[in-house]
């Protein structure tokens, strides 16, 4: 047996799976070869040091108790999580408003700008809003969740009365419609869960935004200023 063959058998020897004539030959080579004997001894010692070394530090004294406490805390937490889930799912009106908000918000952000409409960008929802009847539908749907909301009713009436005029108007007229609808919907979203009536009054029919990115905020600001209740209606919608 040469050194290469001997070293190929190191694993088998160390795992104690070497037997028979091969083991005898292997032993004979170790007696004759100092280098192999030395390398084998090194591996044996390495295994011995790993197996017997006591250098592992001890765990902290409170390890067990801390763990038991954590492990047994779990069942107590489950009802909390369950009740929290109930709170989230319970108010159907809130959920419906959330869906409405997400739908509107999605329209604002997901749709790319219409390249054909290269004029001043008034609101992101412009392309989605096809007619005042659609807007009216949204307001009426929201009214289902808060049928006694006088402000919503008033908004619905306003939209109903102006729909025919605005739908056939110019692009600026269309943006005006959207200013109205955006505002009205933000107001209703803010008012339905809390039950608070918005004091916002209707905007001036001539309020048309010509700015690019800030047009929506400006329109909102104008409406807020007009209502004398600025900020109160916008916040719940953002939080939702």
């Amino acid at each position: 047996m040469n050194c290469e063959q001997s070293q190929n058998l190191f694993d088998a020897y160390l795992d104690k799976s070497l037997s028979g004539s091969l083991a005898t030959e292997f032993g004979a080579h170790q007696l004759a070869c100092g280098r192999c004997r030395r390398e084998l001894a090194l591996l044996e010692v390495t295994g011995h040091v790993i197996a017997t070394d006591s250098e592992t530090p001890l765990l902290s004294d409170e390890f067990t108790e801390r763990l038991v406490e954590c492990a047994t805390e779990k069942p107590a937490r489950r009802p909390l999580r369950f009740s929290r889930a109930l709170w989230v799912g319970l108010p159907a009106a809130m959920a419906a408003c959330l869906i409405l908000f997400v739908w509107l918000n999605g329209d604002e952000t997901s749709e790319p700008a219409d390249p054909a409409n290269d004029g001043p960008r008034v609101l992101g929802v412009q392309d989605e809003v096809k007619s005042s009847e659609e807007l009216l539908e949204h307001v009426l749907e929201a009214l289902k969740f808060d049928p006694n909301n006088a402000d919503l009713k008033r908004k619905a009436d306003l939209l109903r009365s102006r729909s025919n005029k605005i739908i056939n108007d110019t692009r600026d007229g269309a943006s005006l419609l959207q200013d109205y609808s955006e505002d009205a919907i933000k107001e209703l979203i803010g008012s339905v869960p809390t039950g608070a009536n918005s004091n916002a009054t209707d905007t001036d029919g001539g309020a048309v935004s010509e700015s690019h990115s800030g047009s929506q905020n400006e329109a909102m600001q104008r409406q807020d200023n007009g209502s004398g209740d600025s900020g109160t209606d916008e916040r719940p919608a953002e939080e939702l």
Binding site: F63, T64, E65, L67, V68, A71, T72, K74, P75
Partner: peptide
């Protein structure tokens, strides 16, 4: 959720 059993397994 027997705490004593958990303790024994941990130890």
């Amino acid at each position: 959720q027997d705490a004593a059993a958990m303790r024994a397994l941990i130890d």
